[in-house]
Design a protein around this nucleic acid. Structure first.
Lengths: 193, 193
DNA sequence: GCCATTTCTTGCCAAATGGCAAGCGGCGCA
DNA sequence: TGCGCCGCTTGCCATTTGGCAAGAAATGGC
């Protein structure tokens, strides 16, 4: 199985050279997740730093009243793990679930730390990924505060049209912070974009 | 000027011992910011890792139409800097402004990196702070999606009652993602809590 | 102490969204 | 093949929130 995508990803922050990426990539283990399976369950400590190469993942939390709230959606090219649980070794508040069959590469917490120690440039990369995720979350927060649900839906679709193929609309709705009825009406007004 | 608060903060992630904290704290420089002054301007590269010991800071961005949107509020005991701009050395999209006269301790990007290099435990601390900020932002995102504006306002006040003393309500409103009129109505319904 | 500005509230109405329930259609499974 | 569940839409109405404008209250500068 080729790890070309993983190598490209390792180089994406600029902290790691092509040669270093090729070596570091060999430390990751391949992993498949079947549709509907959980990569992480609430209550567990997240122990998989997972780079997704194929498929779609969804993160969700449970409301006080037991309703699922979709907190994240991820496709190929993204790292998926529960940041606070993983680094603090505390129980996760979220679930991570495969929406389709998935493939990727992963490291355990221990392996990641060993690699951080052996490879300072990988540590630098790790920070870059954290900073990137932080910035993305801030942008999403700003959009949620300033833009209408319809505008956020349009933006999401333009950025990730592939979601529509495999993600039930109710998950997209709760990711956007609206009900599935409202999303349905927005879609009708948009002319089924 | 005493740096006791700074030392306590350095120990707060568990990565740094008391003795180490005392030494590391000496590397920070004291800094005061007068009310209404900017710690950071959009377009600049954030170069101040600032630990606030006294006063209140506000981060805000400008909408496409020029409206200010309050993206963050911080009081004593918090580190304030623009994560993406600081670590990526890119122009900031946000402003950071003193709402009251402020005092604290700071490091430049260069100083922070030297300290990361000289003190592995401080690097660990740095990651801890990033992870803490990430988790807080996720919690805020979840609340914004799942809770009513009124509930978010109540929660904010309970967590930080001191804000009401020095932060104009319009800033709190835009931080919550609502207009100042709406906040005013919410406060009336709440019985001026 | 006085004036200008900012902050906050309120009234009026429109728009966005939610809650609930019904209905439709597809898909999997027995 | 038929049944039942799941995903999506729609209708009806209530609630929340926004937009705008006016006015009251507080604040700051001189």
């Amino acid at each position: 199985m080729s790890n070309v995508l993983l190598q490209q990803f390792l180089q994406s922050t600029g902290a790691i050279s092509a040669a270093q990426a090729a070596e570091i990539a060999t430390c990751f283990q391949p992993r498949k997740i079947a549709r509907h399976q959980l990569l992480l369950e609430a209550g567990q400590v997240s122990d998989t730093y997972f780079f997704l190469t194929q498929g779609l993942l969804r993160a969700f939390a449970l409301d006080p009243d037991g309703t699922e709230v979709t907190t994240g959606l991820a496709g190929p090219g993204q790292v998926v793990f529960e940041v606070a649980s993983f680094f603090n070794r505390t129980p996760s508040l979220e679930y991570i679930q495969a929406l389709t069959d998935c493939e990727g590469w992963c490291l355990s917490y221990r392996q990641l730390n060993e690699l951080f120690h052996a490879r300072p440039e990988f540590r630098e990369f790790g920070r870059g990924i954290l900073v990137r995720g932080f910035a993305a979350l801030k942008a999403r927060m700003l959009a949620t505060i300033t833009e209408s649900a319809s505008a956020r839906y349009d933006k999401l679709l333009r950025a990730h049209p592939e979601l529509l193929l495999h993600v039930p609309l109710k998950y997209i709705a709760s990711y956007l912070g609206i009900t599935d009825s409202s999303l349905s009406r927005i879609r009708k007004a948009d002319g089924k974009k």
